[in-house]
Amino acid sequence: MNLNWSALTKQQQKIVIIITVLAVLQVVALGYFMLKNPGKSAGEARKELHELQGQLSAAKDIISRKALVEQELQKSVEDLEAMVPYAPAVFDSYAWAYEYISRRSALAGVMIDGLQEEISARSSTGNGKEAVPYEVSVVTRCGYNELIRFLWYLETGNPLIVVKELTIDESSDNPEQHSVRIVVQWPPSFKIENVDE
C-alpha cells in the first residue's frame, strides 16, 4: 500500500504519528524487559518462585513447631543427663566401678576378694571403633542371702547396670559360704545431642 503523506489530512497525520510513537514505545518496553532479565524468562522465574514458596511454606511449618521441638529436645537432654551419673566415668572407669561396687558390697555386708576389668570379646576382635559395654568381674565368698542382698544393692543403685554373669559354686570347707563370681556390665558410653541457637 502506497501511503501519500501529503494526501492525508492533519488529523490522519496525527493518528499515524501517535501509532508510530506507540509502536516505538512498544519495542522499547519489550526490549527493556528482555534486557533486564536476559537469563530468566517469566516461566523460569515463576517456577523458581513456586519452588521457593514451597520451601518457605515448609520452613514456616517447621518454625511453627519451634516451641514444641525445643521443649522435646530439652526433655530428651535432661533425661539423658540424668543417666550420666550412672554411667562409668570415661577417664577412669575402673576406679568409678570399684567405688560403686565396694560401697554396695559394704552395705550388703559382703567382702570382695577381687575386682577386675573384663576385656570384652567384641572390643578385642572388633575394629576398635565399635562402642563396647564396660565390664567388671567381682569375686567374693558369701552366703546366699548376703549375695541376694548384694545383688539387690547393685541392681537397684544404678539403672544402667546389668549383671551379665553370675556363678555360684559350693564351697567344700564351709557349706554356708559360696564361691561367687559376678560380672557386671554398663552400656557403651552414650552421647547427648544438643543444638544451641
Binding site: 515448609a58 520452613a59 514456616k60 517447621i62 518454625i63 513447631r65 519451634k66 521441638v69 525445643e70 522435646e72 529436645l73 530428651s76 537432654v77 533425661d79 539423658l80 547427648i192 545431642e193 544438643n194 543444638v195 541457637e197
Partner: peptide
C-alpha cells in the same frame, strides 16, 4: 531458623 529447628528435631530424635 528452620535449619536450626530441623537440627533440634534430629537431635531430640537421636536422644
Amino acid at each position: 531458623v528452620s535449619a536450626i529447628i530441623r537440627m533440634q528435631t534430629e537431635a531430640a530424635a537421636l536422644n
